[in-house]
Write a protein that binds this DNA or RNA. Structure first.
Lengths: 244, 244
DNA sequence: TGATACATATCATCCTACAACCTAACTCGA
DNA sequence: TCGAGTTAGGTTGTAGGATGATATGTATCA
């Protein structure tokens, strides 16, 4: 609990701010791939911080594969395809359009993963999923506990695919969405009435128990479209309308 | 070109090594979420480096949401769900089993994205895709240029979905796979004969031109399964065998 | 002209010092 | 004894300088 509060009220350290500034400059195209960054000293003067702070910021960008530092020469912007990490700008998610896109990605990932999970799950997986389902059973409204249980439900399904990368990616995307919605609720009380539809979850679970990939996929797809609708995002997936 | 050489022969800086060590300790569970890391001074003594180096390493982990540092108290391991970035351990990819999992994830992402692209592509997208296709047309073997063209082909399709997140995720996964295969070829000349199957690419392109989502999805799925086979990875996707 | 040596620029690492902040123990009065 | 306030020590955050390693360009000299 204390952890969460701290995570939200996190003070922006100087290195973080410098890194964010440079990162934005790169993303926006002001610094093109191949371009050389100012020297560490120039940056430290420009931002009015010590060279240490600049170095920590650059260490961050370098770890992400956004820039490459060469001793004796300088630091250079790398091409986007050379990124070593995926990071989602939470600011951008305040735009509904971006949220819509992220839901679409989530739908792709989770729908097929549900099918895989249906084919591969064992009893242990089913027990974990059922436990998460029970935890959100009582509550129809989005309380903290229910949200956590909802996330856990999805993560456990991802885990049942037996593919750790799938688990990582789905956890990540879901967490970004959760964080963004949580933030929206804090700033705009209107969002307080968002519900969790337990029925949709039950249908997914039943398909998993039955070991029916097609049914699991369809149920998951319907659920995510529903979830998106409930937070005010309508998904333009042609799959849900037409195919199968 | 020079850039690529430098990127491959990158010297492991001290902060990078320290970060990798701590990261592994966290991933492996030796440091559980909530646990406190040793102080910066202890770490600097343990690794025999300056406190500055330790700080740069920690800045990295912090940016990824793996740890949280609190002034006056210490640094603490965060729960995996709180990660702010996705990063794939390239060491782990040397294990065929992990490579198989990554291909599976790629298949999920790209197959459905191909369907979306078929529904949404405009003429500009088709032109870009065709250009990439032509670039690899002549070569049947995996030369540097062909590999780049292959990657570009996939990235352009991802772009045609109109969803920047899908584009980012697919680019990232493809790049990890490319890097790993490139590395394998360097160390083991046996891999030198891997081919690019142009026919599979053409079939995908034709489905996109026709605007046929189902055909595009099927062609992409077949292509990725084929590509995996050609690098010695067999995909256990039940989708390819049974459904549709 | 060509090769070597030197000067310069830049990142990599180290060191020390101080500020900001937290914790816990300690003091002292009621 | 108890509780509030104070103090001391530890830890991260930031600053600034010094030195080593590496790449580049320049000047010198055979």
């Amino acid at each position: 609990m204390k952890q969460r509060l701290a995570a939200i009220g996190t003070v922006e350290t100087l290195p973080h701010r410098v890194a964010a500034f440079l990162s934005r400059e790169i993303e926006s195209g002001e610094l093109n791939p191949g371009a050389r960054l100012p020297t560490e000293q120039e940056l430290s003067e420009k931002f009015g911080v010590s060279r240490n702070v600049v170095r920590e910021a650059i260490a961050q960008l370098r770890a992400d594969g956004m820039i490459e530092a060469r001793q004796g020469i300088g630091a250079f912007v790398l091409a986007p395809e050379q990124r070593a990490a995926i990071r989602i700008d939470r600011e951008a998610l305040k735009d509904t359009h971006n949220m819509e896109r992220l839901f679409e990605l989530r739908c792709i990932l989770e729908a097929e993963s549900a099918a895989l999970a249906a084919a591969r799950r064992d009893q242990g997986h089913l027990d974990s999923i059922k436990a998460a389902l029970d935890r959100m059973g009582g509550e129809e409204r989005w309380e903290e506990g229910s949200i956590d249980a909802d996330l856990l439900f999805h993560r456990e399904i991802a885990r049942a695919t037996g593919n750790s990368y799938i688990h990582t990616f789905i956890s990540f995307v879901c967490e970004q969405i959760r964080h963004s919605i949580h933030y929206a609720r804090m700033t705009n009380p209107l969002h307080d009435l968002v519900e969790i539809n337990v029925g949709e979850h039950v249908r997914i679970y039943e398909a998993l128990v039955a070991g029916d990939p097609a049914a699991a996929e369809a149920a998951m797809r319907a659920h995510i479209v529903g979830a998106a609708n409930r937070v005010g995002v309508r998904l333009p997936l042609q799959k849900t309308a037409g195919a199968k």
